[in-house]
Write a protein that binds this DNA or RNA. Structure first.
Lengths: 184, 184
DNA sequence: AGTTACAAACAGACCGGTTGGTATAGTGGA
DNA sequence: TCCACTATACCAACCGGTCTGTTTGTAACT
């Protein structure tokens, strides 16, 4: 794998785990086993450029992943259940939810950097878009589907935060069970 | 107001806005117009001790606030609507949601400091408890009420993150409208 | 093939500034 | 006088970023 992709991949999981400010360049360099010169060769504008690159890659990964899951199920209800199931497994095996959440980045950077905030907003929008399309296919009206999609995004994101805080997958399990009530 | 309370008050809003790592001691000192010696007199164990004190104070403030709102309304549905309404006003006037959210702290510290994580978990628990009691008063079964309370906490917390990301109060408005569907 | 030229890629010393934290001295009121 | 409180000087460690190299791959010319 080329160095640039390696940096993005490793930095992404680090950012997701510890947030943007929480990860130092030195930590990234050590994890990648590269030098500072190398990093600044690939990302001349430094840390923030790297973060945005990470968010863009993350967007592709996440949307592709969710898309795949959603294609496997007939209805939004089933698909959502399947997706959350995967989140839970991910959380229980790895202890953190590295796959889908980037809440730490959002909450610390939203008010500090507009480019980063926009990248995050775009990512949420993409995810919501997948929900929306499936809901429309389910037969919901445009407006209802749009509202439900927002609810789903918020609930799942919040649920992951609760899991991280309580160190249990219980919240996500409850959400998985009760989310179908929402899709009506 | 005594210095200690002043420090807690100012540091709390700073932490909420920028997260724990995002706020330096120097920034707190300048905002409070105090010296480092003063801070370390009141919080000998430094920054983390201050954060936990902030979280505890925040817990009192938030729970008292929500409690009051919930007492003004008959049902959980109405109370929730009222509460979110207040969040929206807060967001639209101040640009940030300083009152009720501490997501930045959760997401960056959950994996780094257990004491902080526990303090956050306790806070969520308290909020959920208020929802739970109201739901029980509404006549829900213990189990159903408990599940709905989790959902509410997750959805509202996630909704605030969406608002911060998109710089709109739209997500919370949608949630306010659709949350009643959840309480059933 | 052998040599030269050049740029991409990488390495690491170094920079000013800031971090959280400590130690000591000073101050003002009981 | 005493002591809670505050001010300030100082510290090592670390921050992100810049800098000057050195290595490496490869294309061009003889």
């Amino acid at each position: 794998m080329d160095t640039k992709s390696l940096i993005i991949e490793i930095a992404t999981t680090l950012f997701q785990k510890k947030g943007y400010i929480g990860v130092g360049l030195s930590e990234i360099l050590k994890a990648c086993n590269i030098s500072k010169g190398s990093l600044y060769h690939h990302f001349p504008n430094g840390k923030e450029e790297l973060l945005i690159a990470c968010l863009q890659t993350l967007e592709e990964t996440i949307t592709k992943d969710i898309d795949q899951i959603f294609k496997r199920y007939q209805t939004t209800k089933e698909a959502t259940k399947g997706m959350i199931e995967k989140l839970i497994v991910n959380f229980e095996t790895e202890g953190t939810i590295t796959g889908y959440t980037f809440s730490s980045i959002v909450s610390e950077m939203a008010s500090l950097s507009n480019p980063v905030r926009n990248a995050c907003a775009h990512l949420y929008q993409k995810i919501q878009g997948i929900y929306l399309n499936k809901l429309l296919a389910d037969g919901f009206s445009k407006e209802t589907a749009s509202s439900i999609a927002v609810m789903m995004t918020a609930t799942i994101e919040g649920g992951m935060m609760l899991c991280l805080t309580q160190k249990t997958s219980e919240p996500l399990k409850i959400i998985s069970e009760r989310l179908p009530n929402l899709i009506n």
